[in-house]
C-alpha cells in the first residue's frame, strides 16, 4: 500500500504584503486537555512536572522554549508544542487519569502575522482590543474573525499567531490576507 503523508492546510503559505509578513506555521502539535472533576490539583502538578510551566490564566498564555499553554475554557487548556509523533498516546501515558486528551493538530491551521502594520491589519477583522498596553506579550483570546472562530496570541511586539479551523483555512487566510492588502 502506498505510504501517505499529510500536507499542511495551506501548503506552507508565506507572503509579504507591504510591511506585513503572513505565513503558515507548521511543525506544531496541538493537544486539547480537559480536566476531570476532582483532578484539578493533580493536573496542575503534572503540568508543572512535565512542562515546568504554571497553568495559563484566562487571558495570558505561558510558554517555555518548545511549548505554549493556552486557556481555552474553564477546566480545559490547549498545548501548542513542537511537532511530535502521536502526542495523544504519549500524553495519555504521562497524564494518566488526570486529563482527557485529544490530538487537535490536524483540526487547526496556524497563521503568523508580523511586521509594523500587523496590528492595523488585525484591528479590521478582530474585535478584541489589541492595544499594546491591553493585549500584552503572550496575551491570548478566543474570538471570531470574519465569522470564523479564532484564537489570537501575541507572540512578540508586532507578531501574532492566529489559529482557526483547518477546514476553513483558505477562507480564513483570505480574510487576513485581504485585510493586510487593504492597509498596504
Amino acid at each position: 500500500m502506498a505510504k501517505l503523508s499529510a500536507t499542511d492546510s495551506l501548503g506552507g503559505y508565506d507572503k509579504e504584503i507591504g510591511n506585513i509578513r503572513l505565513r503558515e506555521v507548521a511543525n506544531q502539535s496541538l493537544i486539547a486537555m480537559a480536566i476531570p472533576q476532582g483532578k484539578e490539583s493533580k493536573f496542575k502538578n503534572n503540568i508543572k512536572n512535565i512542562f515546568n510551566l504554571k497553568m495559563p490564566s484566562p487571558t495570558k498564555s505561558v510558554k517555555n522554549k518548545d511549548t505554549r499553554l493556552l486557556f481555552t475554557q474553564p477546566d480545559q487548556i490547549f498545548v501548542l508544542m513542537k511537532r511530535v509523533e502521536d502526542p495523544e498516546n504519549s500524553m495519555a501515558v504521562t497524564f494518566g487519569e488526570s486529563a482527557y486528551i485529544t490530538d487537535q493538530t490536524d483540526a487547526w491551521v496556524i497563521l503568523e502575522i508580523s511586521g509594523e502594520s500587523s496590528r492595523e491589519a488585525l484591528e479590521r477583522i478582530c474585535q478584541v482590543d489589541l492595544d499594546k498596553n491591553v493585549f500584552q506579550l503572550d496575551g491570548m483570546a478566543r474570538t471570531n474573525m470574519e465569522h470564523m472562530s479564532a484564537i489570537i496570541i501575541r507572540k512578540a511586539d508586532n507578531t501574532f499567531y492566529l489559529m482557526s479551523a483547518s477546514s476553513s483555512a483558505k477562507s480564513f487566510l483570505h480574510a487576513v490576507e485581504l485585510s493586510a492588502q487593504h492597509i498596504s
Binding site: P58, F71, Q73, P74, A141, R142, T143, N144, S149
Partner: peptide, 8 residues
C-alpha cells in the same frame, strides 16, 4: 453563551 469565546 459565549459561543465565539471560551464557550462558557
Amino acid at each position: 453563551y459565549h459561543e465565539a469565546g471560551d464557550r462558557s
